[in-house]
Design a protein around this nucleic acid. Sequence first.
DNA 1: GGTAGGATAAGCT
DNA 2: GCTTATCCTACCA
Length: 204
Amino acid sequence: MRRSPLALSFYARPTVEVARRLLGQIIVSDVGGRRTAGRIVETEAYVGPHDPACHAWGGRRTPRTEALYGPPGTAYVYFTYGMHWCLNAVTEAAGYPAAVLIRALEPLDGVDTMRRRRARGRGGKVADSDLCAGPARLCEALGITGRLNGIPLQRGALRVVRGDRRRLPVAVTPRIGITAAVDWPLRFVLLDSPWASRGGRGRR
DNA sequence: GGTAGGATAAGCT
DNA sequence: GCTTATCCTACCA
């Protein structure tokens, strides 16, 4: 089945709105010649230079954050904790640094590939419910690394395509793992989704 | 069921 | 030097 990619205009809106409307949409990765795909079940908004948890807080513009200033629909992939990659979709107008962090997916396609990637370098096996339940986990499962930083999400090896968004029960909570602006309700998660990250399955 | 601590490196002060 | 938009293992209940 062929699904249409989300257009640039989808991302050129208030970041909170994009974060909410990304729930239910589908990420498709063809990295390494393998097709993997998953449905977005958890997101967080990082709303710009006035957001103390945003990497572009205070207008920081460095080689690391450069992709955040790109056009809407750009992939912002950053490295953290010395070993993890995380994927964001850049939002709002070009030049305005804001993005939505993709925090969890429901695996749809290429589950065997996901299992292999997630188990690599780790003798044990990974429960299917943990394949994409976390921002770094889903990047590992989909083969996403810094090589994809700055690419457009409308075409190419990594893209976001339209999913079924009818009747989605959404919970709104503070963001996870940050120490700044802890009261801002900028995390969106499908209510009771078994695919959400830890700290994420909760109701509110 | 839960949580504490370690891994590991870029970017900042 | 210190912090970090994390994950995993070990350990305790």
